[in-house]
């Protein structure tokens, strides 16, 4: 059984490589019917709509910090993500503020979390002291 992501990726590929939308959709529907997954069409289309950016290679990343980050810092973060994910065609950063973090930044992209906040470091320090 193919996942929603796999079907959505197929539909996106067809949309990029077929001469018209009609042919792309027809081929997609034939493939769906051949696998007996017609009932999942609504869920797949919904997934395709909401994840179009991911399918087109655009990486969306949440950047959570205690204070508003300046342009230079945001550019640094973008360049860092470009280095570790070379396959990303474009990177969109979505800044968020959470004053509980005290300082530093949390970067969330795909299934990965990079926690560089002061709060996290203080927790790690506390845990290492408790182990003694």
């Amino acid at each position: 059984m193919y996942s929603q992501l796999a079907y959505a990726q197929l539909l996106y590929w067809l949309s990029q490589h077929e001469s018209s939308a009609k042919i792309a959709v027809e081929k997609f529907l034939l493939f769906l019917k051949a696998n007996g997954d017609e009932k999942r069409l609504a869920a797949i289309v919904n997934f395709f709509t909401h994840n179009h950016q991911i399918l087109s290679g655009v990486l969306e990343s949440r950047v959570i910090s205690a204070n508003k980050l300046d342009k230079e810092t945001m550019t640094c973060i973008k360049n860092y993500l470009r280095r570790i994910i070379p396959s990303a065609k474009d990177i969109i950063l979505q800044p968020e503020i959470d004053t509980n973090l005290l300082g530093g930044v949390k970067i969330l992209y795909n299934d990965t979390l990079l926690d560089l906040t002061i709060k996290k470091q203080l927790t790690n320090l506390k845990n290492s002291l408790l182990k003694i």
């Binding site: 990965t112 926690d115 002291l129």
Partner: peptide
């Protein structure tokens, strides 16, 4: 002693897999 422990504390970070 606490200061010594803090001084030797290594600040590391690692990628965490989340959902």
């Amino acid at each position: 002693e606490l200061k010594t422990q803090i001084d030797v504390f290594q600040n590391t970070f690692k990628q965490e897999h989340v959902g």
